[in-house]
Nucleic acid binder design. Structure first.
Length: 140
DNA sequence: GCCAACGTTGGC
DNA sequence: GCCAACGTTGGC
């Protein structure tokens, strides 16, 4: 089981929209970065990810579960290498964890969210996962 | 709205 | 293969 972080601008795709998509979930499209693509490819069914609102909010607002592993991005041009995974909303954060809270926690200083701010799909370590769940009011 | 970080493109 | 120019992301 691995952990991830998905970034989205709420104006493009918000947590509320993800929740409305329900148990069937949706594909996570639009990744056009090779490192992010590698991360998508490494995901397995059942992996969990934080849903992070960039720009507007700047907070972890929920948890999604990977329900289908990487396959070609339906929104990509023919011949392009991009992939998507399907995710569904698993549970909301009782208390959203803001970027400011992450930055204020020394144990999270090495998170990709801080060190690779522009990467849209990031790995999260188990230790980081547990800390943020706790900050968000979830039992580990 | 600005700007830093960073990835990509294209000229050489 | 280098690197300057340019575009995009995302925090402030």
């Amino acid at each position: 089981m691995r952990y991830w972080l998905f970034k989205s601008e709420p104006s493009a795709w918000s947590w509320q929209m993800q929740q409305k998509a329900g148990a069937k979930g949706t594909f996570w499209s639009g990744v056009r970065n090779h490192l992010a693509k590698q991360n998508l490819s490494a995901m397995r069914s059942g992996d969990l990810g934080f849903f992070y609102h960039s720009n507007d909010g700047k907070d972890v607002v929920g948890i999604v579960e990977v329900i289908r592993e990487a396959y070609p991005d339906p929104t990509a041009e023919a011949g392009e290498p991009w992939v998507v995974v399907d995710v569904k909303a698993a549970k909301p954060m009782p208390k959203p964890v803001t970027l400011a809270m992450v930055k204020a926690e020394p144990k999270l200083a090495k998170m990709s969210l801080i060190t690779s701010a522009r990467l849209s799909v990031q790995p999260v370590t188990e230790a980081e996962w547990n800390i943020i769940c706790k900050m968000g009011g979830l039992k580990p």
